[in-house]
Design a protein around this nucleic acid. Structure first.
Length: 353
DNA sequence: CGCATTTGACCAGCGC
DNA sequence: GCGCTGGTCAAATGCG
């Protein structure tokens, strides 16, 4: 598996613009998230003028298309050139536009490589399922090793779901024969916000707080309180590197559909659902494939409607992307469970009327 | 008054 | 065996 990741990074790192590598990897990881969980649009265009935190993958997936950006650049440059005869500036703009285009092509290629590697990885994991299972006797390991294992892309390419030794870090009475799902999420909050609340649409009850050795910020422990039998737990702690980022670690899978926003308001998560943007490359040192959720930024002009990118892919590519999304969704147990619950609820509603 | 949160105590695994 | 550490429990507290 590490070989595959290394191969992937080799592919990505072949270009001399190594300074973009980390961001490219981040973007591809985020892209893979969108492929797995989002049925909305996917665009491989790069917006080099956008801060990473302002990218939104789910509701407002990616910034305006590059071509539009280029034309704005050129228009802007032409106006300047006409008024102030700033030829060098126009040249610079053209150069940046060309580089932008190259990076876009690179990203497209990386996505294709990523998909092929993902398929290879899936085959590999199918052939070697035992490697995912770690000895239950190793109950606890260091946080760093957990982080490393969490960074390994899962069998379905879902970087956030990977069986790790963290699930074996449970007391014997809690051990289950079925491995639980563990994943991490980064949430960007106001720097002044000292609460450890990650609003993800579910209801959580806090049952503990602890200061850990490797992080001066306290870690909060939550249990899902929406369903009494729901085994899902959540740990929330501020990032060591960036205090404005909350790192939430989820353990287990919800055995109930996500509560509606109205229901969620009864808990601490008041009507919030996930919107997601990727972490910047250096925001969290050990959290490559993680997601950063930014609830502090209001949806502005780059919201889901205005930011819908124009499709520039060929029909084949688009078909491929749609197929990927569909297969990812059908493989996602949370999605199928939610779908089944919604359908059964609908049927029951119709019967009762 | 009921519920959620806080916080110190306790438990269990790991490393020495 | 002992100390350190992360995770959990449960009584105390606060809030609507």
């Amino acid at each position: 598996m590490l070989d595959l990741l290394g191969q992937f990074q080799t592919i990505c790192g072949g270009d001399s613009r190594s300074s973009n590598l980390a961001w490219n990897l981040q973007l591809v990881n985020s892209f893979s998230k969108a492929m797995d969980y989002s049925s909305s649009c996917v665009d491989t265009s790069l917006d080099l003028n956008s801060k990473p935190y302002h990218r939104e993958l789910y509701d407002a997936p990616l910034p305006p298309p590059k071509k539009e950006l280029e034309s704005k650049f050129i228009d802007f440059g032409m106006k300047l050139g006409a008024k102030q005869e700033t030829g060098p500036l126009v040249e610079e703009l053209n150069r940046v536009s060309a580089e932008n285009k190259k990076l876009t092509e690179m990203l497209t290629m990386m996505c294709e490589n990523y998909n092929s590697l993902r398929n290879q990885l899936a085959e590999y994991m199918n052939k070697n399922p035992a490697e995912k299972e770690l000895s239950p006797s190793k109950k606890r390991k260091s946080e760093s090793s957990n982080n490393n294992s969490n960074n390994i892309i899962g069998a379905n390419g879902n970087s956030e779901s990977s069986s790790t030794d963290e699930e074996s870090c449970k007391k014997p009475r809690e051990e289950e024969p079925i491995k639980t799902k563990v994943w991490k999420t980064c949430v960007r909050t106001e720097a002044t916000d000292t609460s450890l609340i990650v609003k993800d649409g579910y209801q959580w009850r806090k049952y503990g707080q602890k200061v850990t050795r490797d992080n001066p910020s306290p870690r909060a422990y939550f249990k899902c309180s929406f369903a009494p039998s729901c085994p899902v737990k959540k740990k929330v702690q501020r990032s060591v590197d960036d205090q404005s980022i909350l790192v939430a670690t989820y353990e287990g899978e919800h055995n109930h559909p996500q509560p509606s926003p109205l229901e969620a308001t009864s808990g601490q998560n008041r009507g919030m659902t996930l919107t997601s943007v990727p972490c910047s490359a250096n925001a969290i040192s050990s959290s490559g494939p993680n997601i950063t959720l930014d609830f502090t930024k209001p949806k502005s002009g780059t919201d889901s409607k205005s930011a819908k990118p124009a499709r520039t892919e060929s029909p084949d590519v688009r078909k491929f992307l749609v197929d990927q999304m569909a297969s990812s969704l059908t493989k996602d147990p949370n999605f199928t469970a939610a779908l089944a619950a919604a359908i059964s609820g609908r049927i029951y509603q119709q019967k009762s009327n």
